[in-house]
Design a protein around this nucleic acid. Sequence first.
DNA 1: GCCAACGTTGGC
DNA 2: GCCAACGTTGGC
Length: 157
Amino acid sequence: MFESMAHWLVKTEPTVFSFDDLWNAPKRTSTWDGVRNFQARNFLRDAMKVGDAVLVYHSSVEPMAIAGVAEVVRAGYPDPTQFDRKNHHYDPKAKPETPTWFQVDLRAVKKLKRPVTLAEMKNVPELSGMMLLQRGVRLSVQPVSPEHFRWIVAAGF
DNA sequence: GCCAACGTTGGC
DNA sequence: GCCAACGTTGGC
């Protein structure tokens, strides 16, 4: 079971929702909603499983960095914001019978003592294959190899 | 604030 | 089904 645990990275703009917000949420848990990209949706819907480990990355902020580690506590289920007309993420084409967008629930597990910055990661040869660091890749939910995951957690400890 | 890169939409 | 136009992401 443990060996099949997958590793992920999710991006968030901390001005909207930060790792600290997750850390301070009831039970340190929150839904991870609002993803509106099909490839990311597929990971949320089909691939992320309870117990999977997740790096939480802060984008569009100084410094851009991995802020902490979370775990999946509920696997993919329909994102209700797609049906909410008043929500910024409302999708008029989505139908409750056949939801388009999915979310998971995440629980904060570990706050890195030292955020691991994008600038730092770019200079680490071992991380050069990370999807996050590839030119033009802007997936907000992406898989991470166990090696890359371990390197980052160790660097931030 | 800029803009490269990418995803989506819609006319044809 | 092509592809130009448009919108978004997200680093710089």
